[in-house]
């Protein structure tokens, strides 16, 4: 308990070491909370329609305007954030974790095992995603966790390849060979050389995967998997907004802003953390 508290405090001190990153962190925190407790913060129920006003521009009652069914865009962004945060973070975390471990194990294994593991990745790449999702839905029915499985099924592959390539490169570098010669064991090398060199890239990949995953979720709902209407998600909000971008730009601009701002802040915080990690590990 105490240890984790200390870790948390250390994390905060890193994040707040410059103002910009601190602001990003606060933005993320507030957004996360607001989405989690959307019932409390949202001015309207997410499905409440007003067909007569249709897509109307931002005004005092609807600060971000309304969509074609006259639903409050601000409310829908908050509710949509729930599923998108969950999918964005959890699915990404799982995909990245699996990918990173797989890649590392593959690179550190004997050549034959490495080759076999990578051919498996090739196969998984080539399976058509649309059909995979439709089949998964037949077998498991439609459920929320299936979204994570479906997204995980594609997103870990690139991660695995990147991590494996880097690990291969690092483990054959002079300094690693030298420290091996000096009697450093497997775990020591992992801790001292491989992980610190990987962590930055893994974090970059993770932050870049988040928006792709959020958009992928809207493709899944195209196939019938994912949140069911009238519940929104950021992916579907952006996609629908794009349809109306000329006539009701607020339907695209606001969801897209939150979408991009989240990624920007995430990236900023991630970069800061990875830099801090690097220092701690290498010194």
């Amino acid at each position: 308990m105490k240890a984790s508290l200390r870790a948390f405090r250390a994390l905060l001190s890193v994040v707040f070491s410059d103002r910009h990153t601190g602001a990003c962190f606060i933005f993320l925190a507030i957004l996360c909370l607001a989405c989690m407790f959307a019932e409390f913060f949202a001015p309207y129920p997410f499905a409440e329609q007003n067909l007569a006003i249709g897509a109307s521009a931002p005004c005092a009652e609807h600060i971000f305007g309304t969509d074609i069914l006259g639903r409050d865009v601000f409310t829908r962004i908050l509710y949509g954030g729930r599923i998108s945060f969950a999918v964005g973070f959890a699915a990404t975390a799982v995909a990245v974790l699996i990918g990173a471990c797989y890649g590392m194990v593959s690179a550190l294994s004997p050549r034959r095992v490495d080759s076999a593991m990578m051919r498996l990745v090739d196969i998984a790449y080539a399976l058509p995603f649309t059909i995979l999702v439709i089949l998964l839905m037949i077998i498991f029915g439609r459920s929320l966790w299936l979204i994570f499985v479906a997204i995980g099924a594609v997103e870990w592959l690139t991660m695995a390849r990147i991590v494996r390539g880097m690990t291969l490169d690092i483990k054959s570098r002079q300094f690693v060979l030298a420290s091996e010669a000096l009697g450093q064991g497997f775990w020591g090398i992992m801790r001292l050389h491989i992980l610190p060199n990987l962590i930055g890239t893994i974090l970059v990949c993770a932050t870049l995967t988040v928006p792709s995953v959020m958009l992928l979720e809207s493709f899944l709902s195209f196939l019938g998997l994912g949140v069911q209407a009238p519940l929104p998600s950021w992916g579907t909000l952006v996609k629908e907004g794009a349809e109306y971008m000329l006539d009701a730009p607020w339907m695209l601009v606001f969801p897209a802003f939150f979408f991009s701002a989240t990624l920007y802040c995430l990236n900023r915080v991630g970069a800061k953390l990875s830099a801090a990690d690097l220092r701690r590990f290498s010194k």
């Binding site: 439709i134 839905m137 709902s221 195209f222 196939l223 019938g224 069911q228 209407a229 009238p230």
Partner: peptide
């Protein structure tokens, strides 16, 4: 009423 979105073949 519960809305249920399906892909074309389904």
């Amino acid at each position: 009423a519960e809305l249920y979105n399906l892909s074309w073949p389904a």
